[in-house]
């Protein structure tokens, strides 16, 4: 089990200590061209989570490879995963070609940013185009909006993905006192505690469809939350919104998770892996009988 950050929830150059407390650091999404991102207001808290509409602010892939990546290597001892975004399958693939460098441990394809207009190609087409040009491990970050997670995941696997990142944020809106959307973009990605049950269900559904590694994420704040994702079939865990409130969360969650596993009388995360899946399967079977 590895502990990562959710893409876009940590800047390793301003907080290298936090990034180094993870098992791997995932960059903000890199797009072909530089993007300034959405105009403020970009974030809003809700009762059970937060909305963000950052809009993939990033310096573009040329500057990323030339300037940011070397600085990340200097600042960090942990492997670097690069999150890749684009508007066509070809754009994703071209960025993957540029990332064929030793410093890049893994590429995570952001197929599901709720804050930009999405690529018209399907997730599987994008994965296929990237698979054709890169030997790097390819993880596909999938939207929780998918109506049939199993079908989506099978198509992504068939296209050559090495793993899945589940889930990205849900699209949401919040209104201010004058009944206007708080965020300038109107909608944003909804994350935090409210996303937890959504993430559990998505990981559970994905795990039924594939044996690929899954980075489970969505509202994880404690070791118990991480444990539940593992029980649903996550092989790795990523922290997102909790990093905003608690930069010490990686160390804390790791300690809490070890204590949770021990209290169950288990030796390691592997012993807990997928146990929720087995329980659901057997209940379904007995109901059918």
């Amino acid at each position: 089990m590895q502990l990562l950050n959710a893409s876009g929830c940590l800047d390793a150059l301003t907080a290298p200590d936090v990034a180094s407390s993870l098992d791997a650091f995932v960059t903000k999404t890199v797009t072909p061209e530089p993007r300034e991102g959405n105009t403020p207001v970009r974030i809003a808290e809700t009762d059970f989570g937060m909305l963000n509409a950052i809009g993939l602010a990033n310096p573009g892939r040329d500057v990323f490879v030339r300037d940011v990546l070397p600085r990340l290597c200097d600042a960090l001892d942990v492997p670097i995963w690069v999150s890749v975004g684009g508007f066509t399958a070809r754009e994703y693939a071209e960025t993957c070609e540029q990332l064929a460098r030793d410093e890049v441990a893994c590429v995570e394809l952001n197929l599901s940013c709720p804050n930009v207009d999405e690529a018209p190609e399907s997730a599987a087409e994008i994965v296929r185009a990237c698979r054709d040009v890169t030997a790097k491990p390819l993880y596909a970050k999938v939207s929780p909006h998918s109506w049939d997670m199993g079908e989506t995941v099978r198509a992504i696997e068939a296209a050559g993905a090495d793993g899945l990142s589940l889930v990205n944020t849900l699209r949401g809106t919040t209104l201010d006192a004058r009944l206007r959307p708080t965020l300038s973009r109107g909608t944003g990605g909804y994350s935090g505690p409210a996303l937890r049950p959504v993430a559990l269900a998505a990981v559970l559904a994905a795990r039924r469809a594939t044996s690929l590694p899954i980075v489970g994420m969505g509202g994880v704040e404690t070791g118990r939350h991480a444990l539940e994702l593992i029980a649903c079939g996550a092989t790795h865990i990523a922290l997102g919104t909790v990093l905003f409130a608690d930069p010490d969360a990686p160390t804390r969650v790791r300690t809490e998770l070890a204590a949770e596993i021990k209290s169950l009388g288990s030796g390691s995360a592997e012993d807990v892996f997928g146990v929720a899946l087995d329980a659901v399967a057997s209940e379904v079977n007995s109901a059918t009988r």
Partner: peptide, 16 residues
């Protein structure tokens, strides 16, 4: 002043 989620450069929410 700007709305901030993290205060340490992680969230990119407080841009001006």
């Amino acid at each position: 002043e700007a709305p901030m989620a993290c205060g340490y450069g992680a969230c990119y929410g407080c841009v001006v």
